[in-house]
């Protein structure tokens, strides 16, 4: 397959799957809605099962198509989780800075991911609800330290005031771009013809035709419950 007619610069598309994990009511759905939909609603229903959103952005010469998976937080849905983080390229581990238990729960998720995900997974620790400073129970320095120890990025965020969220997703996208050309990255890279640069075994991933898309454009929302 020749890549001769490809425009320079934006001639690669990468497709990556990001999964959000964390306890009940820490704000996973709110973070996703803020990032993908650009808003905050006080009235979000608890997520039952999982829902996924697609989101496109452009970074350097790459078009990035993110498949963002939002999951249920209640403990008993845990046994379904492997289905959701299966073949994920990145994980956002979300806790609530006002709830110490939600922070401790992250450690279990990290263990589980390490055990069950074979391809490299980019991790990002998010301390959400940072607007509730007066109720803070988890210090930023402690979380930062922990993030470092597991090789994860770290951000404190507020879905309510829209702080830290764009930065976190941007950081993840950058990292995905960085690793995507490495062998066995598990990330699907397509050239300008929509054909695979590197045939990965992502049976469930997306074949992108060369549609025009705007950077930062909400594509679709799907409730998978």
């Amino acid at each position: 397959m020749s890549t001769m007619e490809c425009e320079v610069d934006t001639n690669r598309t990468i497709e990556a799957k990001i999964v959000l994990l964390g306890s009940q009511a820490v704000g996973k759905t709110s973070v996703v809605i803020r990032y993908v939909g650009g808003m905050f609603s006080k009235h979000v229903s608890p997520t039952i099962g999982a829902s996924f959103f697609t989101y496109k952005l452009t970074l350097d010469k790459y078009r990035i198509k993110l498949q963002v998976w939002d999951t249920a937080g209640q403990e008993r849905f845990r046994s379904m989780a492997p289905m959701y983080y299966r073949k994920a390229n990145a994980a956002m581990l979300v806790y609530d800075i006002t709830c110490k238990d939600s922070y401790y729960d992250i450690k279990d998720w990290v263990k589980e991911l390490k055990k069950n995900v074979e391809t490299p997974i980019v991790m990002c620790l998010l301390g959400n609800k940072r607007d509730l400073e007066h109720k803070r129970r988890v210090s930023a320095s402690e979380a930062q330290e922990y993030a470092k120890s597991i090789g994860a990025f770290f951000f404190e965020t507020s879905a309510l005031f829209n702080t830290g969220i764009d930065e976190a997703f941007f950081q993840m996208a950058q990292e995905l771009v960085k690793i995507c050309e490495m062998p066995n990255s598990g990330i699907r890279v397509l050239n300008c013809h929509g054909t695979d640069m590197e045939e990965s075994e992502l049976g469930s991933s997306i074949k992108l035709s060369n549609t025009k898309e705007n950077a930062q454009n909400v594509d679709s929302e799907t409730c998978l419950c």
Partner: peptide, 21 residues
């Protein structure tokens, strides 16, 4: 062939008996 597992489809349908669905 598309790789859609059934467990992705019905969780909320059955658990909520279609309420809020």
């Amino acid at each position: 062939i598309l790789g859609v597992p059934w467990a992705l489809i019905g969780t909320k349908w059955f658990i909520c008996m279609y309420a809020d669905v």
